[in-house]
């Protein structure tokens, strides 16, 4: 039943929905970045690896943002558009509804990964960066997108209005993304703790250690504890508390 709901949600998102428009905007951003990097004649060998890393990081940040936007709209948006009653009247378990919506939101991230591949191929050729970059985006990015997309879905279930749900999701992303822009954060004791507990910060750190510093995949594996934990925890909450969250009115009663 979850598969049926996920399929229907995917059709709503990708056929005539917002999905293609959001991914088109995402591709324009990556095109601008790739063009600027490719026309930079002063770029040296290492900076080209950094350009691959930057592309993965931007793809991860923007792709997760789009996933959160889709998931934060999933329940509160349907409530506001008046389409949620019809969905609740169908003979489908409520757990299947919320899990199906989470799966559909995650397809936004997977679409972003597919769109990113040609850009990574252009930037990473010759510096052995294409394969690892795609694999990192797929594995690490999917963990972060599932975790934060799930949080967006919980916001959507608990918020009275779509605006509140979207604002909550965007604020969460901003709070998590801001520390990653602080210089040399993981090099201090407190900074390393902040990086490790932040799913976006730890994921970006792990990716850059492999793509730029050429570290072994297992060297900084402990940095993935936060993305893995949040993805598992949020998915667990969605599955367990799902039936109580999928309601016509917001909140747990």
């Amino acid at each position: 039943m979850t598969r049926v709901i996920a399929g229907q949600e995917c059709r709503d998102l990708w056929i005539g929905g917002r999905g293609p428009v959001l991914v088109f905007g995402f591709s324009v951003l990556l095109s601008a970045m790739t063009y600027l990097a490719a026309t930079n004649r002063a770029m040296n060998f290492l900076e080209q690896r950094e350009a691959v890393n930057l592309t993965v990081q931007v793809a991860l940040a923007v792709g997760v943002l789009l996933t959160v936007v889709v998931s934060a709209d999933a329940i509160s948006g349907e409530r506001e558009r008046g389409t949620f009653e019809a969905l609740l009247l169908t003979p489908v378990p409520r757990r299947a509804i919320i899990v199906g919506k989470l799966i559909a939101a995650t397809t936004m991230w997977l679409a972003c990964v597919v769109v990113t591949i040609p850009y990574l191929w252009v930037l990473g050729r010759g510096v052995a960066g294409v394969g690892p970059a795609v694999l990192l985006a797929l594995t690490v990015g999917t963990l972060v997108a599932t975790g934060l997309g799930g949080i967006g879905l919980l916001f959507s279930a608990g918020a009275n209005s779509n605006k509140t749900s979207l604002a909550g999701g965007l604020l969460l992303l901003l709070v998590l993304f801001a520390p990653t822009q602080l210089p040399a954060l993981p090099k201090t004791g407190v900074g390393e703790v902040i990086t490790r507990i932040n799913p976006i910060g730890s994921a970006l750190h792990y990716v850059s250690q492999i793509l730029v510093s050429q570290r072994n995949w297992t060297h900084d594996l402990s940095y993935l504890a936060s993305p893995v934990l949040i993805a598992l925890l949020v998915t667990g909450v969605v599955i367990v508390a799902g039936p109580r969250l999928v309601r016509l009115t917001a909140g747990l009663k």
Binding site: P20, V21, V23, F24, S27, V28, L30, S31, A32, T34, Y35, A37, A38, T39, M43, F45, Q48, A51, V115, P118, Y119, W121, V122, L123, R125, G126, V127
Partner: peptide, 22 residues
């Protein structure tokens, strides 16, 4: 390792294809 010749087609073709599909 990085040539503008192959970057420009990708930078134009991917959004153009996605825009057309949309």
């Amino acid at each position: 390792t990085l040539d503008t010749g192959s970057a420009v087609p990708v930078a134009i073709a991917v959004p153009a294809l996605l825009g057309a599909l949309t």
